[in-house]
Design a protein around this nucleic acid. Structure first.
Lengths: 338, 338
DNA sequence: ATCCTCCGTGTAATCGATTCCACAAGGAGG
DNA sequence: CCTCCTTGTGGAATCGATTACACGGAGGAT
């Protein structure tokens, strides 16, 4: 592959002049510029980003470590992050942690080794030593979706509290009184917060949330299946299962179906995170939708602010309830289908 | 961030010795090695991958350009590619083309600028000049899923021909005679092949495939919606719609639902690409499943073979039909629900 | 005519690693 | 005791860019 020296030779100038042309530095004569441009063209030259990064100490690359690429919520987030980054002239390298802390650490380390300009993380756990070190280090960092309490890093996320209150109101209006939740890992903020918000909303109606109605999941379909099995084996099974993410809802649906039960007549189901398929499941599933596009944009903006020396603030955006048919209907509910 | 010089100073040796320790070169005395390891530890030193890449002319990074991250088929593929690559000590940078050729070119260019060691591509179109140049260039390349005819690059893909024949046999047995297809872009191999295989299978039963029964899609949900609208507006609408990917099936389902029709009683639906949600749609959808895990592994293996100087061959794996309820049932069909 | 500016350009240092080559020390063999 | 080889080590070149600095020439001011 042609290097800057080849271009210089071809154009009959020094490498400095070629570099000036590449970086559109003003002091290059029109004649020289023309010759350089022609040489670049004829050699099909492209600057070596590796060499450039070494010299300038910036890669124009952002790292994004997400918890699970197979989760449609995170792929939507990843897509919007990439889009926003591209608009600002940055590339994105995605690391998929598969909800495994050691894999998350692997990606963080690899990204740091590559000297990415900034790191966007949706932490899988409460914070490994590596993650805490990184947060304290000079590499700009921003948490997205999930965060680690006590770590001084801006957070961009959606607040589901309000939407969960709406959901509980809806469930109560329909007539449900025995409500269960499949939680995410307690080590993640989204894992614990959603349970807390749910419990609090229930309290508003004087409904308790017994331990037997809290299933421990890990945001994967299988755990949703297992938690649901356990609920169904209870002497008093719940009327409603609220899954803290879409994959666990899928698992719950699997289990419910395996038991030959119908939704919502035998048991109702709701999920955190809305995905296109929820419109077409049997029945369409009531869910809480997060503004993934806005989250991605805000996260990139915050990170680039840090990179460029500005001081970003945390951003919290509202999530909203989308009522479908999986929880039954009350006379007062007006239906919304999209 | 500490550099190799700092480590050398701390350990009281030269940078050469530190480098030897880093690369586990044999001729370093145990004493020196110990001191270097201690220095690395105490400084928290991590080698700069950018500098290393510049010198060694290898990045231990693979590029993967896929057509659409939001398509679960491609995210599954991306995940298995990353996994296989990691096992061989490579990182993967994913570029999402969103089915847009210019975006695909953007990613290819960026990846090439970063001097990735090899490129995995699922081309969005018939081959831009850049793509053709790249195929001819010295950068190792392998096509995955889709390919570009006439370009001398190994291809790793699934062959759906057999499964499509099985699908048509199933549809015929159920009693369907008016079969339509929503095709992908003709510029993609998967776009045209699936139509061809479908047409050929129909021919086996003496059933024609009129142009009005071929919807032009672009692998996105919206196009599935539009094609379905057109089918339903026909004087003789089809009995069955076969969508050439899962997103267009989603769009078709949207349109069918908007018309107040029921699947499979009013119209049957089948899709290429199986995804977990198809088990829970109303009704569960008959689909053709590709072995994404094997595809990803085989693609990485082929690419790494090329990188390391071996001569890989193309790989074609079989896809298989998964019958569910969206096409109705014949007495002779034995049902399979997973 | 002389001096000063400014402009365009080239030389060379630099980023952080790897690696060729030279060299010193020590042991083996004659 | 001298030579030769092995082993461990350091100096310095190198990868491909960017950029500080020096310099020569043109043009304007005096």
């Amino acid at each position: 592959m042609a290097s800057i020296k080849d271009v210089a030779a071809e154009a009959g100038v020094s490498v400095a002049t070629v570099s000036r042309v590449l970086n559109s530095h003003p002091s290059v004569s029109p004649a020289a510029r023309t010759r350089v441009v022609a040489a670049i063209e004829s050699l099909g030259y492209r600057p070596n980003a590796v060499a450039r990064s070494l010299r300038t100490d910036q890669t124009r690359t952002l790292g994004l470590v997400i918890s699970d690429v197979l989760n449609p919520y995170f792929t939507a987030l990843a897509r919007s992050v990439e889009e926003a980054a591209r608009a600002l002239g940055y590339s994105v390298i995605i690391g998929n942690a598969d909800e495994r802390p050691e894999l998350q650490d692997h990606h963080v380390r690899t990204l740091l080794d590559r000297r990415i300009d900034g790191l966007l993380v949706s932490p899988t756990d409460g914070g490994s030593p590596l993650m805490l070190d990184t947060a304290r280090s000079s590499t700009p960092m921003v948490f997205v979706d999930r965060w680690i309490p006590g770590v001084d890093v801006p957070v961009v996320r959606a607040d589901g509290r309000e939407a969960i209150r709406d959901l509980v109101a809806h469930l109560h209006a329909v007539g449900h009184r025995r409500l269960a939740i499949i939680a995410g890992p307690a080590a993640t903020t989204t894992g614990s917060e959603r349970v807390e918000a749910f419990r609090e909303a229930l309290r508003g109606y004087g409904i308790p949330l017994p331990d037997s109605y809290i299933g421990q999941g890990d945001f994967q379909a299988d755990s949703g299946r297992r938690a649901t099995e356990r609920f169904l084996a209870l002497p008093q099974p719940p009327h409603v299962i609220f899954a803290a993410d879409n994959l666990m809802a899928l698992g719950a649906l699997d289990a419910i179906r395996a038991h030959g039960l119908r939704v919502p007549d035998d048991i109702a189901l709701a999920a955190f995170d809305d995905i296109p398929w929820f419109v077409h499941t049997d029945p369409p599933i009531t869910a809480i939708a997060q503004p993934t596009g806005d989250l991605g944009r805000a996260a990139v903006q915050a990170l680039v602010d840090r990179i460029e020396g500005r001081q970003p603030r945390s951003v919290t955006l509202p999530a909203r309830l989308v009522v479908r048919r999986s929880c039954g209907e009350s006379p007062t509910d007006q239906r919304s289908n999209t």
